[in-house]
Write a protein that binds this DNA or RNA. Structure first.
Lengths: 141, 141
DNA sequence: GTACACTACATGCATACGCATCTAATGCAA
DNA sequence: TTGCATTAGATGCGTATGCATGTAGTGTAC
C-alpha cells in the first residue's frame, strides 16, 4: 500500500466519521426536542384537562373530520402507536364519554369512532393549552 | 368598532392562524420523524442484538466516558426517562452483565455505573446497526 | 357454495413507564 | 452536636405499551 493510499484511507475515514457524527447529533437533537415537547404537552394537558397527549391528538383528528368520525385504523397513524394500543386508547376515550364506537355498515369488521359533544367540548377546552405549550417549547430552538 | 378595526382583527386572526398551523405542522413532523427513527432503532437493535434503544444509548454514554463510568443521574439526561425508569434501566443492564454498580466514595448516596467488557463488546457489536438505521431513517427526510 | 387467505379490531400477557414514597447520606444552621 | 431540609437512588403501585393471538367479517378461487 502506497503512502498515497494510506492518506486516502485516512481522509475517507475522517469523512465518514464526520458524517456519522452529524447523523448522531441530528438524532440527539430530534430526540431531545421530542422529549421536551412531548413531556411538556403531557404534563400540561394532564394536570389542566385530564387528557394524555395521544388522547388529545386522537380527539383533534376526530374533530377535524367533517363527519366527526373515522375508522380506528386512521387514528393509529395519527398517534404513532400500535394497533392494540390504539384500540385501548379508544376504549379509554369511550369510558370517559369523549367518543363512541359505532358499527361500520359497509365493513362490519371495522368500527367508526365518533366524537361526542362532551369530546368536542373537552378538546376545545384543551386546545389553547396545547397550542401554548407548542409555542413555548418549539420556539426556543 | 370601525370597519378598519374589523379588518385588522380579521388580518391578525389569519396571521395567528397561519402561525398556529406552522407550529402544528412542525410538531407533527417532529413527532412522525421521531416515531420513525425510534421505531426502526428499537426493532433492529432488539432483533439483532437484544438491546433496547435506551439500553444502547446508555451504553454509548458509558463507553464514551474516558473512565468508563458515570453517575446514574447522568444517564437520566441521556435517555430522556424519569429517574425511576433510569434506575430500572441500570438494573436490567446489570442483570445482563453489561454494567456494574459501584459505590461512589465521594458521595455515598450515589452510585457509579460501570461498563463491563461484555458491555463494551455488545455496544461495539450493535453500533453499526444503530448507525445504519440512523442513516436510513434520517436521510429520507 | 365451500375453502382458505386476509383484514379489522379486541384481548391475554409480560414488560416498561411515571408518580409517589422510602431509605440513606449530605450539608447547613442553631 | 443536634436538628432539619435536601439529594441520590430504590421500590410499590397503577397504568400504558407491544407482541402474539383470538374472533369475526370479507373477498377470491375453485
Amino acid at each position: 500500500m502506497t503512502l498515497h493510499k494510506i492518506h486516502v484511507h485516512a481522509i475517507l475515514g475522517r469523512v465518514s466519521d464526520v458524517a456519522e457524527q452529524g447523523l448522531l447529533q441530528e438524532w440527539h437533537n430530534l430526540s431531545a426536542r421530542h422529549a421536551a415537547v412531548f413531556g411538556t404537552l403531557e404534563c400540561r394537558l394532564q394536570e389542566r384537562h385530564g387528557l394524555g397527549v395521544t388522547e388529545f391528538e386522537a380527539l383533534e383528528r376526530l374533530v377535524n373530520c367533517v363527519i366527526g368520525k373515522c375508522r380506528a385504523a386512521d387514528l393509529t397513524e395519527v398517534v404513532h402507536l400500535s394497533q392494540s394500543a390504539t384500540s385501548r386508547l379508544v376504549a379509554r376515550l369511550e369510558r370517559e364519554g369523549l367518543v363512541q364506537r359505532a358499527l361500520c355498515e359497509s365493513d362490519r369488521r371495522g368500527i367508526f369512532v365518533v366524537v361526542t359533544d362532551e369530546g368536542r367540548r373537552r378538546y376545545e377546552e384543551a386546545k389553547p393549552t396545547h397550542r401554548a405549550a407548542l409555542e413555548e417549547t418549539l420556539a426556543e430552538a
